[in-house]
Design a protein around this nucleic acid. Structure first.
Lengths: 149, 149
DNA sequence: ACTATTTCGCTAGTTTAGCTAGTAATAGCC
DNA sequence: GGCTATTACTAGCTAAACTAGCGAAATAGT
């Protein structure tokens, strides 16, 4: 194995370790926010979609989390009951709904995410702008590759 | 916000998106391997610890996944019943156990991880060795920062 | 050295959250 | 207009988490 191949391999190992570390982070947030992992993953998904300006239906949530639409109904019931989201009518398809985050939701998420964000920021800030652009590009490509799967 | 701060921010957003994408990847593997997310996360953790040459007790698993030791007993029961692992006596502490992966476990994990690994490899290979070292360093620091939390 | 406390993995019983099956309402295609 | 697909939902079942508590072993205190 040449040096380049070795470097590729090392990065892939690092990705798996990161995946594992993120599991752990998600576990920690679940404990603090008194939520189960799936509900938290749904919240995370909604935050991200919102940032991208995309609207999300219950169907999308089910697809993303790879759970049934029935389970998704219950998941949304829980989150709605606890004030994390609202179901709004879809503008053009009357069968469908738009799942909208509440302020409480954003607040609680970022409140608990904040400390972790600080840790990540601490790791990130020392890098030069140029390096950060490279890293961001790589992470984006990674997400894209995983998403399209 | 100056250009550097903006770059830091963009990377942090990319990390959140990656976390979300990894959720999705884990969901996909869960479906294929006919396992629940927690059992799969445990398997992933065991694979990583093994690669690092660390031994893992049931207690470590509980701590990592942030579930109770009682739930962990059942989790290990399932994985042991299905031939993914063995409980071995701890060499020095007779209360404790060492959780050891079986070959089947490693095979099944990598078999299903392989296709995804190819995607990740496709994204990774175009980068120069130098860039890869930078990326690996960053990812390692990220994992470390999250783990120590 | 002996007792008290803590740690470890486990069992028992309860609660929670996933699943499948099936429904009503709506959309979209001949 | 009539068929088929899709969307979100309900009902009932199963799986996987939780809490409480136990016995065995390790460790700390005096």
């Amino acid at each position: 194995m040449d040096a380049h191949q070795q470097a590729v391999f090392d990065v892939l190992v690092a990705i798996r370790a990161l995946n594992d570390a993120m599991d752990r982070m998600n576990g920690g947030m679940k404990g603090e926010m008194d939520m189960n992992v799936t509900d938290l993953a749904a919240l995370r998904m909604l935050i991200i979609r919102e940032q991208r300006g995309e609207s999300v239906s219950p169907h999308h949530v089910a697809e993303h989390l790879k759970i049934s639409t029935a389970s998704t109904t219950k998941l949304l019931d829980r989150l709605e009951r606890d004030g994390y989201l609202e179901r709004q009518p879809h503008p053009s398809d009357r069968r469908s709904r738009v799942v909208a985050l509440t302020d409480l939701s954003r607040q609680r998420f970022f409140q608990h995410f904040a400390r972790r964000l600080q840790l990540l920021r601490g790791v990130t800030e020392p890098y030069s702008e140029e390096d950060l652009r490279l890293i961001e590009g790589y992470l984006d490509r990674l997400s894209e590759a995983i998403e399209q799967d």
